[in-house]
Simulated scan of single mutants.
Amino acid sequence: MPSRAERNALIESNLPLVGYLAAETHARATHIPRDELAAVGALALVTAAEAFDADLGVPFGAYARRRILGAFADEMRSMDWASRGIRKRIKETVAVRETLTSALGRTATAAEVATAMGVAKEVVVEALGDAARTVTTIEDPSARDVTADVPLPEESALVGERREVLEQAVLALPERMRRIVQAVYFEERPVKEIAEELGVTHSAVSQQRSEAIRLLRDALDRYFAEGSAPVTTTRVSAGARDAYFSRIADAASARIADVFRDPAPA
């Protein structure tokens, strides 16, 4: 296990990688906010630095990239709206359209696809609409060269604060959310196992994890807000959110505590 200083150095030098991969993933999956991906990626980077073993001979950048993309994939799956039946319908409809398009030498119309499938045109239109917003698979970017040895100047100036705020924000989460975040991102346990341990459904764990990420994002936005009030992403009540911010203030350093005790920017 790396020392704290070594861990911090790994996080600081590779933080730009989180922003790069978040931007790349958001470009393919625009239904997921880029800031939410960045929050998930930052957690993954911290856990990667905690678990990294240099003796294995794998560069940390490559190791962290794999962990970050894995965290993105988990987040995308948890937000996926499509059932197996919907996916099957999408796949069949797209396959028929592609076959007709190839044969006709032009893009097949919805009416032509519907005729070929023996279904109503409205069914095809809906399936093609669903296809346009289906979660995109994250491609392996290992072939791309990403320079992450030297952090960007603006990242260097804020990385220490971000890490400290993030650590305090995780610790201040409601108990069940904190247990889920620590189990998923720090212990790398499968969601199914966590659900069985907590006595809840797989979906309930995923929902709690997503809400925890939104709370973390709101905490980071609150701390780094400049002038106007940041947009709230969490779905908990205003009272529960304020109580969360108070817990951060109670445990954090004076510099951080002052931000979370002060009224939010107007």
Rank of each mutant, 00 (worst) to 15 (best):
R189I: 07
R97D: 01
V135F: 10
T109P: 00
H202D: 07
R163G: 04
L198T: 03
R89W: 03
R106P: 02
V96K: 03
L166Q: 04
L100V: 03
A143V: 10
T136M: 09
L158T: 12
I86Q: 15
V94R: 12
E193G: 12
L104W: 03
T109M: 00
V123C: 06
E196M: 08
E139W: 07
V125A: 08
A82E: 09
E98D: 14
A114M: 04
S142D: 13
E92P: 02
E112C: 00
E161G: 11
E98T: 05
L128P: 01
V170L: 10
P141S: 05
E197A: 15
G85A: 13
L158H: 06
A148W: 08
V124S: 01
H202Y: 11
T147P: 02
E167T: 11
V165A: 02
A116Q: 10
S203Y: 10
T99H: 15
L104C: 04
A183T: 05
R162W: 08
R87P: 03
E154M: 10
R189L: 13
K121I: 08
R162M: 12
G160W: 05
V181W: 02
T107C: 12
T134G: 06
I194C: 06
V125Q: 08
A169Q: 03
P190A: 08
V150L: 12
L104H: 08
A82F: 15
G160P: 06
L152H: 11
L198R: 05
R84W: 09
A103R: 15
R163T: 09
E155N: 15
R144C: 07
R106I: 11
E154P: 04
L128S: 04
Q168I: 01
E92R: 15
A143C: 05
V165K: 02
V113P: 00
Q182H: 11
P151W: 04
V146K: 05
R89Y: 01
Y185C: 02
I90S: 09
L100Q: 04
A95E: 14
A110N: 14
M177L: 09
A148E: 10
R106Q: 12
K91R: 14
E155S: 15
T99S: 15
A143N: 05
V125R: 05
E98F: 01
A131M: 07
